[in-house]
Structure formats: structure tokens, C-alpha cells
Design a protein around this nucleic acid. Structure first.
Lengths: 340, 340
DNA sequence: TTGTACGCGTTATCAT
DNA sequence: ATGATAACGCGTACAA
């Protein structure tokens, strides 16, 4: 559009050299107050903003991070992304957001793309497919550029991470139901080979075990991990001979669909069935009934991830490779004691 | 971290000049096939990626757009953002996402910030505060850099836009309820001075008028435009002497909270009250009951916005300044005929 | 077909 | 306290 205003234009207007103009921006203490004053004024008047490419060429940073996640439509991510963004912002950084739909190809494409754009680091958000071959490229990348994983972790690697203790979260959820007197607790899980599903299953099993309830694999329904999957899971269970009295779902979003299915068939929650979700998405406080769930503190998770990647970028010492966030039970209205 | 591979390294390795290397990337037809072959191989082997800053300095573009929106936690935005991103991607562009929380100060800060980062354009998503003084800076910006507005429009300006016909959307929603026999229709709106609230109120009023139902301002509740606001609005109405038989809400998210309030007090939807939302957020198909709503086609809106800003950036001719998307009624389960 | 050399806007080093 | 100038990595006009 318009010709860009350069440091040269400012220098001419101020009758000084470009070096002085540069100095008022980078080492303002080394320039005389009046000169500084004058130059600052002129920069404002002419709406000067330094060319980021030129600066980047020299400083080799553009204060930008690339955030890679499965899909922003998953309700867990918006608050998490806000946490990241707000925090990056306060450090003077910005973030690109990239949706991969869990496709490793897309992920690799984005990585190439953004290495080309000289980002300062990568944040990988969300659970990852199991298997080394899906994660090898991250190990490679980690040698070139600062990266961090959020809500997943590659054991035995030296990749930094911030994640919820999901095993414990699932344990707490299941235990809550058991303490309420439920013994027949169905678990609605996702059906892909993702670490998060493994963790939650572990926690669920362990809670049963610790309470001498035998694990029944028919009680585990694996489907699509969203509200539709939750609905279908409900339909499937109600049509089957499985008769749980309570449900633990892998995500809040699944819980929503499940609850719909239950109501749809004339049941009441928590009157007939208790439901515990997982995530802590603020929205579901306003579900009917208010969803009892495991809070993963998505916003806080994002903040911690942002702080950590910035530290890594700045070469600061990090205490622990893996930061664990302990989840907490939020009791709302979707559970009831089972008495019979 | 590691030393960057430059075009010079490639040139040395291939025993050619840097000009030739540059040419294989930018004018490959002007270099001999064998030379090209060899250089390409070496570039791959050495994992060469051109320095974006250097390229940007010359071409003065980094194929990046800045997307400014109120808050990604508003459920209407994730699908819209996906539409934008997917489309930008296919044009070789990437997008920054910035949440302003409707603060003009934050917005201006981001604008400065990203002008400094040399983005190629801005996409302003979401309704804007009324009043020229809140939008003057966009008129200024529009002279410097390509910009587009999504779901708002500044009349009389030459800023491009893509937006739903919200007046008509509200008209359709209200008319739907009227046709079902409802005469006492409450409208739950947002309480700020934003264009979108004005538009929807207009459509609501017009529908009443066209059906000889007199407008009762007590039937309009203005509150916070999210699920909590919806819940409070429900509480407020149920505690009052206003006795509507149906609700039209400014957003799907409001509808969710409203429905909760209604159930909470022992009412049934649509048995006792009919509810129509606004937006078309896919999630609410799995609300109980499935939410009848006005589809604004958020994903498609995003796609169209992305296509348009790219055209503007490329200097292509645009047919119409303002692209209007006609909303459609999605009938699900939250409405019922009123007979009495 | 290929190479030389200049310029993009800024920072930083060395003089002054 | 300020100025001149060499880098930063790449693209391209011009020369060969």
C-alpha cells in the first residue's frame, strides 16, 4: 500500500544519523535527553514502526511461538489457549494457532512451515498418538528449536512438558462415585490409541481395584470423544444389558451427549444415573444438571506452559522437565448417592 | 540453538554461486536440470530453509494475517476460526489469533504490535461497540493495510466485510415462534452497546409488528451474553410477573443457561417453554433438548472471510464490499406449538 | 546458463 | 553524545 517509513526518514527529519535513531529505541540511556525527546516525537508523528524483518534478521527472533493442537472445537482448548496467549502476551510474545485434526502429516507440515517462518518455539497441545514413530520427529525438532508438550509427555525424552495427572484424575472421579455407593460404573472413553485414554482407563481400573470392585470390560465403552460420541454411547448402553448406575466420562463434552441420551429416554440425572465428567470446562457449570467433573485447570495449564516455553527460549534454568498439575474434583449437581 | 544453514553453505557445497541457488527456489525454469537436481538434493540433505526475515525484508510479506476477536471462549468462534485457518492455509497463509475481551485498548495494542510484525492483513471478528470513536482507528488502519470485518460492518466506510444478516435471522427466529402460536415471546439479549444486539432487537421487533403483536419492553431482558447470563435471565423472568411462553435468545450459549434455569425450576422444554437460540454452534445439537436455532454458518463465514482478505491482499478485484450470509432456521427439539 | 554486486531496514562496532 | 559503516541472509538486475 503506502511506502514504509524507515529509520532513515526519521533520521532525516530529525537531522541526526540513523545510529542515533536506533539508539533511542535500543539504548535510550546513551542519548541526550533533548535529542531523545525530539526523535521520539518525530517517530510518533510519522507513525514509525521498525521493520520486524530487519530486526529479526539481526536479532534472529521475532518473539513468536507456534501452538499446535488437535482441534480448537474441542471445548477444553479455548480456555487453555487463552492461558497461553495471555501469558505469551505479557512476555511480549505472540502465538500462531494450528489445528492438526490429530494428523501427523498436518503436524509435520506445520512444523516445516513455521521453522521457515523462524518461530522461536513450539507448543504441542493435547494428547498424542501412541507409538514412537508418531513422535520421533518431535525428538528431532527438540534438538533444533525449543519445544514443550502440554497434556502429554514423552517419557525418557528430554522434552519439557506440562500436564495433568490424568491417572489420578480418573482415580478421583471413579472413587467419588464409589464413595457415593455406586458399584456398577460405566466408563465412556475415546476409541483411538491416544495416551490420554490409556491414563484414564488406568485410573478408573485402579480405583475399582482399590475398592474391591471387579473390572468388567463391558462397562467400558469406546467411541468418538465428543458430544456426539457421548450421545451414541448412551444409546448403546441403554439398549444393552449393561446396567450401570453411574458414568465416568473421558471428557466433559462426552458427558453432555450422554446426559442428553439419558434424558431422552426419560431418565433423570442424577436421579437415575450419576455422571462425572473430565476437564473442567467452565461452560458445563450451566449444563442441566451442573456437571460434576475433574478440573484440569485448563487456563492455568496454558499459563504454565507459556511461562515454561519462554524460559526455555530465554535459556533459563528449568527445575523440572515435567510439570505435573494435580486435578481436583468439582462437585456440582450430576451425582447422587446410590442406595438400594 | 544451532547455526543456521544459509544459501551460501548450499552454494559452496554445490560449487555454484548463491545466485543459482536462489534461482532454483524462485525461477527454477531458468536453471539447468542437472544443476537444479543437484542443488535441490543438497538443500534437502542439509535441511535448508530460507530465512524468512531475509525473504520478508525483500518481498515485504510473510504471508501472515492477524485475526482479532473478542474471546475464543465464545463458542461461536472456534468453528469460525477453523474456517478462516483452513482457508488461509490453502492459500499458504497463517493466522495469529488475538483476544481483546472487547477492549478497544487491547485491540489497538495488538494492531500496533502486528503492524510491527509486518502482517499482511487484519481480520476483525465479531460485533463491535457502537460509536464512531471506537472504530475510527479501523478507518485509519484500512488506509495502511488490508483489513476485513467479520460479523460486523461499518456503514459508509470502504472497509470490506462478511456478515450474517442478523436482523433477518432474528426475524426468522421470532416468526418461527409466532407461527407455532406463541404470542408472549421473551427476548434475552446482551446488555452492551454492540451492533449485534441492536440488529437482533430490530428483527425481533419487526417480526412482532408484522404479526400484530405489540412490543412489550418488559419482554426484553438484557444481561451478560453467555451461558451464565442466560441462567440469570431465566431466574429473573421466573421470579417476575412476566409470563412468556417462549424465548428467543441472542446466542446459543445464552439459550443453554436459560434452559438450565427452566429445568431447574421444574419446567420442561419444550413442554412448558419453547426456546430458539442464535448462532448454529454444532455442540448444541447435543443439548437436551436439541436446540432449535438460527444457523449463521460460522465455519463457512470464516472461509469466506479468509478468501476475501486474501483477494484484497493480492489486489484482486472484489465484487461487493459487504458479503451478506443469509442465516437459516435449524429446527430441532426445543420448540413446540402453543395451544390454549 | 551462471556469477557479481547491490539493496532491503536495522543493529552494533568502531571512530570521532 | 553522535556518526559512519559493516554485518544479517536473500533476491535480482546486470554482466559475462
Amino acid at each position: 500500500m503506502e511506502k514504509q517509513i524507515t529509520i532513515k526518514d526519521i533520521a532525516n527529519a530529525a537531522k541526526v544519523s540513523i545510529a542515533t535513531v536506533s539508539r533511542v529505541m535500543n539504548m535510550p540511556e546513551k542519548v541526550a535527553p533533548e535529542t531523545k525527546q525530539k526523535i521520539n516525537q518525530i517517530m510518533k508523528d510519522m507513525k514509525f514502526t521498525p521493520n520486524a524483518f530487519a530486526v529479526g534478521l539481526i536479532k534472529n527472533t521475532i518473539k513468536t511461538v507456534c501452538i499446535i493442537l488437535p482441534d480448537i472445537n474441542n471445548l477444553f482448548y479455548p480456555p487453555l489457549l487463552r492461558g497461553i496467549e495471555d501469558r505469551l502476551q505479557s512476555h511480549g510474545y505472540n502465538g500462531f494457532i494450528c489445528n492438526t485434526d490429530k494428523s501427523i502429516e498436518k503436524e509435520m507440515f506445520y512444523i516445516e512451515n513455521f521453522i521457515g517462518k523462524n518461530v522461536d518455539g513450539f507448543v504441542f497441545v493435547g494428547t498424542r498418538p501412541l507409538g514412537l514413530k508418531n513422535n520421533e520427529h518431535l525428538l528431532e525438532l527438540n534438538k533444533r528449536i525449543p519445544i514443550i508438550m502440554v497434556n502429554d509427555d514423552i517419557l525418557g525424552s528430554n522434552i519439557y512438558s506440562v500436564m495433568t495427572d490424568e491417572v489420578n484424575g480418573a482415580y478421583i472421579a471413579t472413587t467419588h462415585l464409589i464413595k457415593l455407593g455406586h458399584k456398577k460404573i460405566a466408563f465412556i472413553n475415546g476409541n483411538e490409541k491416544l495416551t490420554t485414554y490409556e491414563y484414564k482407563l488406568q485410573g478408573y481400573k485402579r480405583a475399582l481395584e482399590d475398592n474391591d470392585i471387579s473390572f468388567d470390560k463391558n462397562m467400558v465403552i469406546c467411541g468418538i470423544a465428543n458430544e456426539k460420541g457421548g450421545f451414541y454411547a448412551g444409546e448403546e448402553i441403554l439398549a444393552s444389558s449393561i446396567k450401570p448406575t453411574a458414568f465416568f466420562t473421558e471428557s466433559d463434552q462426552i458427558a453432555m451427549g450422554l446426559v442428553k441420551s439419558l434424558f431422552f429416554h426419560g431418565y433423570h440425572v442424577p436421579g437415575d444415573f450419576s455422571v462425572v465428567g473430565f476437564g473442567g470446562v467452565p461452560l458445563f457449570e450451566q449444563l442441566y444438571p451442573g456437571l460434576t467433573t475433574i478440573d484440569q485447570f485448563p487456563y492455568k495449564t496454558g499459563e504454565m506452559a507459556a511461562d515454561k516455553i519462554i524460559k526455555i527460549i530465554n535459556g533459563e534454568k528449568i527445575q523440572q522437565r515435567k510439570t505435573v498439575i494435580e486435578p481436583e474434583l468439582i462437585i456440582r449437581e450430576s451425582c447422587k448417592a446410590f442406595t438400594r
